[in-house]
Simulated assay, not measured.
Amino acid sequence: MSSSLFDYEPRDWRTDADGTVRFALVGIGWWTSEYVLPAIETTDHCTTTTVVSSSTEKTDRVRANYGTVEHGLTYEEFADGEAADAYDAVYVCTPNATHLEHVEAAARHGKAVLCEKPMEATVERAERLVEAAADVPLMVAYRMHTEPAVRRARELVRDGAIGEPVLVHGENSQPLLEMIDDPDQWRLNPDLTGYGTSVMDLGIYPLNTARFILGADPVQVQSTMASDHEAFDAVPDEVATFSVVFDDGTHAACSSSQNAHDHTRLEIVGTEGRIELEPAFHMETQLTVARGEDTVEFDTEGVDQMAEEFEYFAQRVLADEPVYADGDHGLVDMKAIAAIHEAAESGGTVDVE
Rank of each mutant, 00 (worst) to 15 (best):
M1T: 14
M1W: 07
S3P: 01
P10S: 01
P10N: 05
D12M: 00
D18N: 14
R22Y: 06
A24E: 00
Y35F: 15
H45D: 05
H45T: 13
T48W: 01
V51A: 01
V62E: 02
T68M: 11
L73K: 09
F78P: 01
F78D: 10
A79T: 14
E82D: 14
A83D: 06
D88S: 06
V90H: 15
C93R: 00
P95A: 04
A97T: 02
A97G: 04
E101M: 01
A106D: 10
H109R: 08
A112W: 04
A112E: 03
P118R: 04
V123H: 14
R128V: 02
H145Y: 12
P148H: 06
R152D: 01
L156K: 06
D159S: 14
G163F: 10
V166S: 07
N172V: 08
Q174E: 12
L176A: 11
M179E: 04
D181H: 04
D182V: 09
D184S: 13
W186M: 00
I204S: 11
N208S: 12
N208A: 12
N208K: 03
A216P: 00
V219E: 15
V219R: 13
D228T: 15
D237W: 00
T241Q: 15
S243Y: 05
D248A: 03
A253N: 12
D262C: 08
T264H: 13
I268G: 07
E272W: 08
G273I: 00
E278T: 13
V289T: 09
D299S: 12
E311D: 11
A325C: 10
H329I: 12
H329A: 13
I337F: 02
A339R: 04
E345K: 08
E345Q: 14
T349N: 04
